[in-house]
Every structure is written in C-alpha cells, then in structure tokens.
Simulated assay, not measured.
Amino acid sequence: MVRSCLSFIAIALLLGCTSKQESDLIQGYSKKVTYHKQLQKTEKIQLYQDNVTKVMLTATYLYTPDFEDHDTRDEVFIVGLHSEGQAEGALNSEGNSLTLNGKRPKEIKALSPEDERLKTLSFVTPWSRYYLVTFPHESSKKITLLFESTSYGKGALHFAKVAKYVLTKEAL
C-alpha cells in the first residue's frame, strides 16, 4: 500500500514537471535553428583609439560542410563594418584591407540594408555597412580573417571548417 502511494506520488511529480512552456521553448528553438547556427559562425572585433571603439567588424562564415574529399568551393563571408569618424569607412576603401590566411578577396560586393541574406544573420546593426566577401578556396581547416586599418591597427577573426574543439594542436 505504501509502495503504491509512493509510486503514484512520484509519477504525479514527474508529470507535473513537464510543462507546456518546455515544449514551447523547444518549438521556438527549432524555428530559429538557422539563426543559432549562424551565430556559431559569427565573430566580432573592435579596434580602439584612446579607449574608444573606432572600428567594429563582424563576420559570419557562410561555410556548410560538404563531406567531399576534394571540396574546392570558395570561402564566403558576410562582413559588417562600422567605422567612427571616417567618411569613406568602406571595407575596400583606401587604408582598409581584409585578408584570409594572407590572401586578398576575389570579390567584395556591397549589400543593401534590405538584402534577404541579412535577415538570417544573428548580429546585424543599422549603423554598419555589409558586404558579401568571397575568397579563394582554403584547404586548411582553421582560417584567419585579418582586418587592417592604417588609422586604427589590425584585428584577427578566427574561424574553423569543423567545430573548434575538434581541431588538434597540429591544425592550430
């Protein structure tokens, strides 16, 4: 009798712990899986002058694993740039450079603020300019995007074609 009462109470407690809110949370996450995956492939740097942010650069790596032995697709990023006090402030303007593992981009295309690709990104600000930047294929699993400004210095963004915790010391 005591065991059956305890079993009934335990089952009631377990059923009471699952709620509609939990399933709503899972459904909400499922709807935004793309958003969260993009967030994992987004990095940000800030360049300072006198402890004031002068340049903020965000980059989202648009790589999706292909699992082919000879994947030769170009490396594509959406790069957002906000530059304080510079009228030109463009990614490809004089004094700014962007390289991927030391290689210059094949193409830099400015995106309009209404571009559909920006709607899926996790970090978009109205004061930044956005660009679709294409680099030649990089065989390395770890890649470094380096932004250099003659006025404010340089900053590096680190990306990986596999999960970063999978990389070994040799790949780093």
Rank of each mutant, 00 (worst) to 15 (best):
61 Y>V: 08
158 H>A: 05
146 L>N: 11
147 F>C: 00
168 T>F: 07
151 S>P: 03
162 V>F: 06
64 T>K: 11
75 E>P: 03
147 F>H: 07
60 T>G: 07
58 T>L: 07
163 A>M: 05
139 S>R: 10
63 Y>C: 00
105 P>E: 03
143 I>F: 01
60 T>A: 05
138 E>D: 12
157 L>P: 05
65 P>T: 09
104 R>K: 15
103 K>D: 09
126 P>S: 14
168 T>K: 14
87 A>V: 15
72 T>L: 01
169 K>S: 13
99 T>A: 13
120 T>R: 15
136 P>K: 11
130 Y>N: 06
113 P>H: 05
89 G>M: 04
80 G>L: 06
94 E>T: 07
113 P>I: 10
133 V>P: 06
168 T>G: 14
140 S>D: 15
154 K>F: 09
97 S>F: 03
95 G>V: 08
57 L>M: 11
135 F>Y: 06
157 L>K: 04
161 K>T: 02
157 L>Y: 07
95 G>F: 02
98 L>G: 02
101 N>I: 01
117 R>H: 13
161 K>N: 03
115 D>F: 06
114 E>G: 07
111 L>P: 11
93 S>L: 03
87 A>Q: 12
154 K>N: 07
76 V>K: 08
109 K>A: 12
145 L>A: 03
167 L>Y: 02
145 L>V: 02
141 K>T: 04
150 T>L: 02
64 T>E: 05
122 S>K: 15
84 E>A: 15
105 P>G: 13
